[in-house]
Write a protein that binds this DNA or RNA. Structure first.
Lengths: 341, 341
DNA sequence: AGCCGGAGATAAACCGGTTTAGCTAGGGTC
DNA sequence: GACCCTAGCTAAACCGGTTTATCTCCGGCT
């Protein structure tokens, strides 16, 4: 009834525990005849090695880790992470150990614990900060890790990233080519590295630009939009750092009687079902594939490969109904949806 | 440099390993003086027990499991699961072992493996099937489990559920009260228990009803809608089994020149940002809280409590712009958004 | 014949905990 | 004073693997 252990195999095959271990793991030290017999017995008994015991004697834990630092409630609407996780899983046969924590400190100590306890073989690092302490931590622990969505090279760590700088530049160029001059950006959390990169790219490519902070929630998007449109010199275009804030912006605009895109063009960073249905122009990338790529990179590092930097394809701007030349009233096709009564 | 083990504590405190174990776990067998000294030493050395080693000697694994059976790509758009996971995490201090697999067979063997290897202390069972084999499996393994979103009582297992039958009945009653007679339902996967429950409730409360199958994707929602609207007797209202299919339905309707809600009322099961922004009437429930409740139930079962059935609050119908009396042309407020040009 | 080397296997230590059996010292009982 | 009980602790086994040291046998070489 109980699941067979290596000891049962040894007894059944008439050899020692050690020999079974060598045979099962394809290491030298046993004859081909013995190996074949052991494998035969093992499969007939339906043997499956215990990852727990294996992890204890400093071998593989058969799991990789991911820690998210977010207020849990806010997480649910962020399709991005779930897409990413789904992509990661598509390339991995091992399980993902997931935990949501409230602070960066907890995150750090969680990594230390997981590594010390051999609970994971490696981790994904997301939401990279400016001068992120995790980079040094991973190096000092010798823990395989892949930086997901950083800004290129990070210390001795492997990384999978997209060029946010170039992407932002291309968005601004598109808006400028339509005739926009006064452009605003509703940014994400200022502590995140990619926010800084986008800020830099935005400021260096826009002549008359203004940046307002946000935290990816609809409320923040609405507040920022209200502030921008209510100011003395409202922008003719706004670039939002995620989809949720962008749709909130569309609603606020309608509420304030500002036509989209006739009086205000709107661009969302990261495409989603929400943008597709809301017909927002969005910067689109294949997050699922991105996650898959990150998983491959982590597997490579865990396999002993040298850390490499993989640059993802540049996000592509998908033009929909929320952008046009400033001041034009009629558009080809329907404008984006207006808010609820 | 290395993390201290129980042996280091024992040496530093001048006692045996066994005594340290007893002291740290608050079990009798050591004097209060010794216990205090051990705790003192342990905290000064920054001791953290190894979950791996602990799991090996048949104690807690400090993790709970969740297996999702889905084509990974389809998963990303299902905000439901991520909301659920976020809610679960909010109530648990342990990590969640997550794996996405392709088939039910893999799922079953994964549970067996996890349990045999002491990788998890318990699991959440989602997407319950009609006569789900997992229920018997959990009982035979003696594995703590909570059925999430089933239909009430399931064998000897604890369960957290919402009354889909009553919810569906209330939706139909609402539509009938508006004057609808010919109502259609675009269902989810027929193998899922809640699909069957909703089917039953739908058929028993609608006089002139028709059910079309779907698989939660936008494509399925669009195809089903096209078929329904193109038939000889198109319905005046459609209830969709999720948000993605519902918005796809809105777009197909517009494409075919069928006004929503003037000629067709649309209701989505499970509210989301998508429904809110698309202004769809939706059956709303607090998925985050649902996940939190499931986590509490699992913790209770793992703590030795008797399995209990917790019924979640009835989903509430949030009426927005996609429903009205049939045949009315003008609505108060704006209709839902039309599809892209 | 004698020596060496290597292949093939085993026994035992180890990972970091938990648990059980056994030992010792002290106190109470008669 | 002999006896028993128990609190408090230690030593050792155990969980299921991996890894290392050791042991045996056999063939080849001089």
């Amino acid at each position: 009834m109980k699941r067979p252990t290596i000891k049962d195999i040894a007894a059944a095959a008439g050899v020692s525990k050690g020999a079974v271990s060598l045979a099962l793991n394809g290491r030298p030290g046993v004859s081909e005849a013995t190996r074949a017999r052991v494998l035969e017995v093992a499969s007939s008994l339906g043997y499956r090695p215990s990852a727990t015991a294996r992890a204890l004697s400093s071998a593989s834990a058969d799991a990789v880790g991911l820690v998210l630092v977010r207020p849990p409630r806010a997480l649910g609407d962020e399709a991005f992470f779930f897409q990413l996780i789904a992509g990661m899983q598509s390339e991995m046969s091992s399980a993902l150990l997931l935990q949501v924590v409230a602070s960066r400190d907890e995150e750090i100590s969680l990594y230390q614990r997981w590594w010390a306890e051999h609970r994971v073989d490696g981790v994904f690092l997301v939401d990279l900060l400016v001068d992120d302490p995790r980079v040094a931590l991973m190096s000092s622990l010798g823990m395989p890790a892949v930086v997901v969505g950083g800004a290129g090279h990070h210390g001795a760590l492997a990384s999978v990233w997209a060029d946010d700088y170039a992407a932002m530049t291309s968005v601004v160029e598109y808006l400028v080519s339509l005739g926009h001059r006064r452009i605003a950006r509703v940014a994400g959390l200022p502590s995140l590295l990619h926010t800084v990169r986008r800020d830099q790219a935005f400021l260096s490519s826009v002549v008359d630009g203004v940046i307002v902070g946000g935290d990816y929630t609809a409320e923040a998007g609405a507040a920022a939009t209200r502030a921008l449109l209510g100011s003395g010199e409202p922008p003719s275009a706004i670039v939002y750092d995620n989809d949720v804030m962008a749709v909130a912006g569309v609603e606020v605009a309608a509420e304030m009687g500002v036509g989209v895109p006739s009086q205000l063009s709107i661009v969302a960073w990261d495409d989603s079902v929400l943008c597709q249905h809301g017909r927002l122009t969005a910067l689109s990338r294949d997050t699922f594939a991105f996650g898959a790529r990150a998983a491959r990179a982590l597997l490579a590092v865990m396999g002993g490969a040298l850390p490499s930097d993989v640059e993802d394809v540049l996000p592509e701007l998908v033009v929909r109904g929320s952008t046009s030349a400033p001041g034009r009233v009629l558009q080809r096709g329907a404008p984006p949806r207006n808010p609820v009564d």
